[in-house]
């Protein structure tokens, strides 16, 4: 019998992550590590990981990493890429990191068309800090800071940051996918591959938003979290390619 899925080269061998059972981070981490290997990027890759659940990502990815202050990832990545354009630079960020405190950095790095790729994990809550409302929390969704459900009158509506940056000419590729089952996971890998290829081809800024399960804070089983994404979350956050300017000269 032959092993079909050997351990990803750019994933620290036999690491056990701190993520909760059924957390989407684990799946997306594996996908990113596989792509770094398949696309031969690991040697020149620098990843900027966020403050948030993925703050310890440098214990998992086996590539050079910089841990950013909360929300500053795309600014740090801008500095890295501008100083060393030969490096493959991507950020790995959560929804609070990227679309709350880091909104300005997110919007302006995208608008400048920085040659970086952004892997944006949207799990609709602040996970690391215990499940508070995030800009992406759905209407009516209970979190530890919306105990009776998010009320737009009071808390505003879910923020669609990827649609915002998708409208910028500097953005070469923007897609939203979902880790909500085998098919979604394969689409997620394909989308991130497209984004990484964008940077390799020098086409400019790319971002993939991944709707990702957070069973612990959603108070659901991992399997139910997948279903909740498919049935509820994608109603608010439509899947698909939001911008594709890769063909432009």
């Amino acid at each position: 019998m032959k092993l079909k899925n050997k351990w990803p080269k750019y994933y620290k061998k036999d690491v056990i992550t701190h993520y909760c059972p059924g957390c989407g981070h684990g799946i997306v981490h594996r996908i990113v590590a596989e792509l770094l290997e398949e696309m031969e990027l690991g040697k020149r890759a620098v990843c900027v990981n966020p403050a948030g659940c993925a703050v310890l990502a440098y214990k998992y990815f086996d590539i050079d990493m910089i841990e950013s202050a909360h929300g500053r990832g795309t600014a740090i990545a801008t500095g890295v890429k501008r100083a060393r354009p030969d490096l493959f630079v991507f950020t790995y960020q959560g929804d609070g990191d990227l679309s709350a405190i880091g909104t300005a950095e997110t919007i302006h790095s995208a608008n400048r068309g920085e040659h970086i790729s952004v892997v944006f994990i949207n799990n609709a809550v602040y996970g690391m800090t215990g499940g508070q409302m995030a800009p992406t929390t759905l209407v009516g969704m209970r979190t530890t800071t919306t105990p009776s459900g998010r009320n737009p009158e009071y808390d505003g509506y879910p923020l669609h940051i990827t649609e915002v940056v998708a409208s910028f000419p500097g953005v070469a590729y923007a897609e939203r996918v979902a880790v909500d089952g085998p098919a979604g996971i394969q689409k997620t890998k394909k989308a991130i591959r497209n984004a990484f290829q964008c940077q390799i081809d020098g086409l400019g800024y790319s971002i993939v938003e991944v709707l990702s399960p957070c069973p612990t804070n959603w108070k659901m089983t991992p399997r139910a979290s997948f279903t909740w994404i498919t049935e509820e979350m994608t109603k608010e956050y439509k899947l698909g390619v939001l911008a594709d300017r890769r063909a432009r000269e």
């Binding site: 500053r72 740090i76 801008t78 500095g79």
Partner: peptide, 12 residues
Amino acid sequence: AAINMLIGASAV
């Protein structure tokens, strides 16, 4: 953002 860009450049 500027000081964080400096962090990125300095790190490399």
